[in-house]
Amino acid sequence: MHVPDGFLDLATSAATGAVAAGGIALALRGARRELDDRTAPLAGLTAVFVFAGQMVNFPVGAGTSGHLMGGALAALLVGPWTATLVVSVVLIVQALLFGDGGLTALGTNITLIALVGVWAGWWTFRVLSRVLPRRIGLVPPLAFVAGLVSVPAAALAFVGLYAVGGQAPVELSTLVTAMVGWHTVIGVGEGVITALVVSSVLAVRPDLVLAAAPYRQATELEIREGATA
C-alpha cells in the first residue's frame, strides 16, 4: 500500500518531504496540547497499537484478507494531532526497519496516509457530528463514514501527486476512476473495521474515544428513587 522509490520524480518527493516535515512539526505542537508531558509514552504506545493493528488480518473470503490502515481510527481514538504523529512514526519505522515503502518516498507516504488520511477521516466525523443529532449510538456509523472517506481521499491525493510527478504517461481520468473506485471498495472494509473497533472501545472505556467526548458530556449522572436504599 505504500508508495515505493521511483514512483514519483525527485522534485515531487522532495516537496512532499517538506510538507510531511511541516505537518509533523505542527502535529508535535498539537499533540503536546492534547497530551502534555504524557505525549511520549502515550503516542509511542498508540503507535505500537496501530502497527500491531495493521497485522490483524480480516478475512474477506476466497482466501484473501484485508487489514486496517488505521488513520481514521487513530484520529477518532486519540485526536487528529496525536494521530498524525502516531501514523508518521509507524510509517518511519516501516520504512527504516522493515523496508516497507521507499526511503525517498517516505515524505510522500507520510503526506498521503498520516496527513490526508487522518485529517480527511477526522473532518468527516466532525462535520457530520455537527449536522446530525447528538446521540451516542451514532458514533459507530459516523466512524464508518470517516474510515470509508479516509482511504479514497488518500488515493485521490496520490493521483494529484502523480499528475505532477508521475513517471509514466497514464491518462488521468483512467487513473482517477481506477484508484478512487478500487480504494472506495477498500474504504468500505476500513470503515467497517473502524466502526467495530470504535464501538468496542466505547463499550469498555468511552473516555478513550476522543471523538466521542462531546457525546459523553451530554449524559448526566442521575440517581434514581430507591437506588440508594
Binding site: 504506545l45 500491531a52 493493528g53 490483524v56 473497533v197
Partner: peptide, 17 residues
C-alpha cells in the same frame, strides 16, 4: 477480531499511562 483490536488499543493505552 475488531473487539480484539479494541481491547488491544485499551491495553496499549493503559500501558502507556
Amino acid at each position: 477480531l475488531a473487539s480484539s483490536a479494541g481491547s488491544l488499543f485499551i491495553r496499549s493505552y493503559e500501558r502507556g499511562e
